[in-house]
Write a protein that binds this DNA or RNA. Sequence first.
RNA 1: GUGGCUGUAGCUCAGUCGGUUAGAGCGUCUGGCUGUGGCCCAGAAGGUCGGGGGUUCGAGCCCCCUCAGCCACCCCA
Length: 435
Amino acid sequence: MAPANEPLPGTSDLWEPEVTDWVLLEQAARDIFGRYGYGELRTPIFERTDVFVRSIGDDTEVVQKEMYTFEDRGGRSLTLRPEGTAGTMRAIACHGLADGEQLRVFYMGPMFRGERPAAGRRRQFHQVGVEAVGGLEPYQDAEAIAMLVHYLEAIGVSGGRVRLNSRGLPEDRAAVSAAMRQHFAPRAQDMCPDCQRRLDSNVWRILDCKNPACQAAVEGAPKMVDLLGDESRGFFAAVCRGLDQLGVAYELAPRLVRGLDYYVHTVFEVVHSGLGAQDALAGGGRYRIGLPGVKRPLDGVGFAAGMERLLMARESLGLKAAGRPGADVFIVALGDEAIPAGLGLAQALRRTDLGLRVLAGLGGRSLKAQMRAAHREGARWALILGDNELAAGTIVCKTMATSEQETVRRDDLADWLRKAAAAPAAAAPATASTP
RNA sequence: GUGGCUGUAGCUCAGUCGGUUAGAGCGUCUGGCUGUGGCCCAGAAGGUCGGGGGUUCGAGCCCCCUCAGCCACCCCA
């Protein structure tokens, strides 16, 4: 295949029948999130670069090396959104939010990060996410997590594990970092070079390191939750209490940190064993984001799930796309007069209240070839229209599943189809074969 | 950005030690059956062997470069 026709690395074309699965994820999101009072928000796919930098944090991996940033003709720096929260917050700030007002939104769509593609990681990937903004209630966090679990159930993804931790408030961080440094400094010589550097720059991340030596050093590390102030500890306890009430199973993950700067208090993720190395299905937490022109930072809680990964999890569980449904009617037209007549007949049938899916053989191919096409398209009925039938004002109706056929007057065709459609469908509805 | 594996027909893949005209299955088209699908049978179309360079009398096969895909690291969804 000519490279010029291939999609860019980390992007892909999406064909039937996979599209059917995507639609399923989207519809389930609208259904489930709607039950919790969330409404859909669609924000632009690109924003001014600083929208992302200021809320994600310029110190983060995402901002430092993963963003698709470019200049428009006016020389402004724009960026393809690498995640959904920043744009959502910008939109809410623009829209305005009264003191005490709460807003619940969900979104879905493509996100962009300039990473090396791997299993479950693409440069254009898709997330479905939610944000509950304008409140500082621990039970909001619990409900958001419960909603995520509910959604996963709705799309058939079982086997996910909820991992939960708290990063506390910004004012807790100095104490936490100091305690961490105290623990890791004596062990530094055993740790990987990255983590030796992190000792100064980013102690928290050492907790996340997958290097075996570093994990050993992490073993006896103090639990983050124990280092937090009273307010943060109380908040976290309330989140756990809420989850218990909601019947959500979770596990404490003292080492869970997450990569974006805006998180405060609760952080969580859902991991799944069917995904390979990138095992995070969804992640989220509580955040506090300051925006220009807004007096107080916005508090909120949300999560995002990777749609590609949801699909991978479904696949690992044996859930497959059903594919596009077959045609109801295939019109087999024979002869110079009948072919255009078949074109008109197809349109007339599509416009009836029967909601029929109608295809017509338009190319003057042989009867046999058209019958093959009818079969391949999964048609329930083949309607044969030759010059003979045209002259007689009739049409031959063949039921594919039984091979029975009868000659029907054109005037009676709609009634015939209505009756045939009402009759119990033959066996399993056929599925069109996919090109 | 670093590393490993893989690129042969629309798809999934064979291809021996470097040796004549690169194969199979599936799919597509046509015919067997003049106006009747599936199953069966026969035939046909379809290839710059990812691309470029090199070694050789001769390269799908060996060497170098490059592009792409997959996987892993980093990080995350």
